[in-house]
Amino acid sequence: MSANHDDHHDAPDGHGRALRLGIGGPVGSGKTALTAALCRSLGPSLRLGVVTNDIYTTEDADFLRRAGVIDPDRILAVQTGCCPHTAIRDDIAANIDAVETLEERFGPLDLVIVESGGDNLTATFSRGLADRQIFVLDVSGGDKVPRKGGPGVTSADLLVVNKTDLAPMVGADLTVMSRDAAAVREGKPVLFTSIREDKGAHSVAEWVSGLVESWRHQHSHSHLS
């Protein structure tokens, strides 16, 4: 699944630890909803942990806890001091600390999701923090967004376009979005979802479980299950 992805991340040795998946994207695009959906779909088969980066207080973490899709203790919230992109890109120390805390407490884990605070189109995860990353857009931001590109859209391992159910109402042309995304992403995958209609975001979940599977193969020396 990650064959279209050069494995050039320089994170410290990934052996014996969970895959770290970053989920980023603009405010309101559905990052928390996607995180909840992945927990719902993957929770039964994978050992999960979640780190949220809230702009405000611990709202996203609280949302996930209330959603009841994962043991609340497996969710840690990180404050970002008004700078969500700093916490996932320039100074990842607090996020690394949270990820390692989860692994220490509940490890071994298969997957730790790090959900960024809502930010702009330039926000991407440091490879020191996330092994793979998903960028989430929604159709209501306008169908021109993929064409505008930006590091999130162009470089994420997976681009998710959410809220497809709203496309007719906001006049967004999914074909245009798909074509533009394919052009700027040089063949990296794009998935269209409506998490409101598909509570498990199954296409995305399938992509993620493929990632976890190949991660296990590559880093399996201390992972025997």
Binding site: G81, A87, D90, D91, A93
Partner: peptide
Amino acid sequence: SRLPAGGHAHS
């Protein structure tokens, strides 16, 4: 302040 040690999130 760019030292990546988490200081940016403390006021």
